[in-house]
Design a protein around this nucleic acid. Structure first.
Length: 562
RNA sequence: GCGCCCGUAGCUCAGUUGGAUAGAGCAGCGGACUUCUAAUCCGCAGGCCGCAGGUUCGAAUCCUGCCGGGCGUACCA
């Protein structure tokens, strides 16, 4: 609807003369219903250009538009306020839209901006050193939903998880497992470690200074001991420990993701990038372009040339790359696979690092406009007013699994999605655990269940929702308001996808649920005469479709009953 | 010090490209169920949109400076 209107306005402006060719016509949906369904500020913005007062420009514009617009779509064109021109949809236009919605069914909301393009969404990407925490949960759910949104706007989407398995972290992990294993296999003396909080803990003598203390490490060691007995003591090779740990921890991570209905298309890891020579290629490429130098035995990247305060180390004195280097290599690999769009979902703690990756990609000749980084702020768990204390070091934190066990997958996903990624998230366990009207996710699910129930009941008593129901009987103000709300869905998804802002969707769906509840309260089905009942059943079905499709995008179930 | 995010109702937060009288949920107060699910609906109350300047016909939104909170600023990831 916006595009045809823009065209008409353009025609009028061209006739007016003196309007710059690049003048952009803005159309917006006004907040207040009395301002119509669409409004343009064109007259206000042209006042200074044309040297006339905005009100009179608006009058001219409106008069000519009344002649031009299609009356079956636009019912009225009015001048209001300081010089806005407000448009009101014809009801027939709404009924057509509703009929289209019903015909499209579970594909209603899909658009085609991304059609023919491929996107790679990288998310979670936690290294397999322990169970996922709630911060990873926010990452996982945001990434997964952004991937869904891109699919709904036509992209062919690949979901990928990247992790570092070649560096120091995994070595420390392996050493931690080995130390526990040695303690099982033989009589090993213990030593005590002092933690940040000043407490001490007894560990086997070979345990690394910054090792992983979680119970899961001991369990992995137990399994190794059950399988191999003392045999692994003979070698200094850490590989069996590292591999066992990676495998066991990854299995747990995948279970956790599955519980959130997250299904990755693929996993990429650092080791493979080394094996394929990608990391070396990056170093060569940056060196050839003259952006690296050696100092103090390390290899540096001249990030000061890109406005950073300091240069950045790519390869440490030890010969090991910093984590940035394989990360760059991973991105060159993504480019090599030909994706049109690459979205990376990172925690706020990465914000200092990703610009280096982009700078390097730029030097290597890649189009960094195709890479989009979504940064999200941290998650704090609270219970009512009390913050929930956690220590990562001791692995004594509420894991993502714990959270899902306590509040369920739907609530977990919803709470992570309902806030902007930009805002620090207070996850209130007390509210999340509450299965009541206070919990916003139930409001949406309840509306869906209620529609299912109403439609079933109406059919039981002999009504039916004929495909040829006369939708023009839907003239009650709550019916019209609901239709308008429902028809916004495709645009809403498109906005959310483009802005990488999943939280638009829960906010919108709450408005849909509210509009439906108001309709439900004021417009009966059973008890009405057949024609009207059929039309209302069709409208209820349309609302159900939007709620269902919207919840599907969010990865949240739409129950038939509650 | 520097960089990024945030500051909007008692609380948690919406408010895409600058628009008309700044919104929602929760909490508070008052109403509505012998009728399709009351996990609902209707109403009331609640605001110097952190502060101060600036740009504009118009600023919660853009710019500058300050104040407050978070995260970074590693040869950790």
């Amino acid at each position: 609807m916006k595009d045809p209107l823009r065209t008409q306005i353009r025609h009028v402006l061209d006739a007016l003369g003196d309007v710059p060719d690049d003048f952009e016509i803005e159309l917006e949906e006004p907040d207040r219903p009395e301002h119509g369904d669409l409004a343009t500020n064109t007259a206000l913005r042209l006042a200074s250009v044309l040297g006339d007062n905005p009100r009179s420009i608006a009058e001219t514009l409106a008069a000519q538009l009344r002649e031009r617009v299609d009356p079956s779509r636009i019912q009225s064109v009015e001048v209001a306020g300081p010089g806005f021109v407000n448009f009101r949809f014809a009801q027939d236009y709404l009924f057509e839209g509703l009929a289209d919605l019903l015909a499209e069914g579970d594909t209603f909301g899909k658009t085609d901006n991304g059609t023919g393009q491929t996107a790679l969404v990288e998310y979670v990407s936690a290294n397999p050193t322990g169970p996922l925490n709630v911060g990873h949960g926010r990452n996982a759910v945001l990434g997964d939903t952004i991937a869904n949104l891109l699919e709904w706007t036509g992209y062919d989407v690949t979901r990928e998880y990247y992790y570092n398995n070649a560096g120091r972290q995994m070595r420390v992990l392996a050493q931690s497992v080995r130390a526990r294993y040695e303690a099982l296999a033989g009589d090993v003396s213990t030593t005590s470690l002092t933690l940040d909080d000043g407490t001490t803990v007894e560990v086997p003598a070979g345990f690394p200074e910054d090792g992983y203390l979680g119970q899961y490490i001991t369990e992995i060691a137990d399994d190794l001991y059950d399988e191999h007995g003392d045999a692994l003591l003979a070698t200094d090779d850490l590989a069996p420990f590292r591999e066992a740990a990676e495998q066991a921890i990854f299995a747990d991570i995948e279970d956790t993701l599955r519980a959130l209905t997250i299904d990755m298309d693929g996993y990429a890891n650092e080791q493979a990038l080394h094996d394929e020579g990608r990391v070396q290629e990056v170093l060569n490429g940056l060196d050839d372009a003259g952006y690296t130098y050696e100092e103090n035995g390390a290899l540096w990247f001249k990030t000061t040339e890109f406005g950073k305060e300091d240069d950045t180390v790519l390869v440490k004195q030890t010969g090991e790359p910093t984590y940035r280097t394989p990360d760059i290599a991973y991105h060159t690999a993504k480019f090599g696979r030909g994706f049109d769009l690459m979205v990376d979902v990172f925690g706020a703690d990465h914000h200092a690092a990703y610009p280096d990756v982009l700078s390097a990609l730029d030097v290597l000749g890649h189009d960094t406009d195709r890479v989009d980084v979504v940064l999200y702020q941290f998650v704090t768990l609270v219970r009512g007013d009390e913050p929930v204390k956690m220590s990562t070091r001791r692995a004594n934190y509420v894991t993502l699994d714990d959270l899902i066990d306590q509040v369920g997958a739907d609530v977990t996903r919803f709470f992570f999605l309902m806030r902007s990624p930009d805002t620090h998230l207070n996850f209130d366990l007390e509210l999340a655990e509450e299965e009541s009207e206070k919990n916003p996710v139930f409001y949406l699910q309840y509306a869906h269940a209620r529609i299912c129930s109403v439609l079933d009941k109406a059919e039981e008593v002999g009504f039916s929702h004929d495909a040829d129901a006369d939708l023009s009987l839907l003239t009650h103000e709550d019916e019209i308001a609901l239709i308008k709300e429902l028809l916004r869905f495709p645009q809403e998804l498109q906005n959310a996808a483009e802005a990488r802002a999943p939280h638009f969707v829960p906010n919108y769906l709450r408005d849909v649920a509210t509009a439906f509840s108001q309709f439900y309260d004021h417009c009966q089905i059973i008890g009405e005469e057949n024609e009207r009942a059929s039309a209302r059943m069709q409208l209820a079905r349309a609302a159900k479709t939007v709620l269902k499709n919207g919840l599907t995008v969010l990865g949240i179930s739409a129950p038939r009953q509650m």
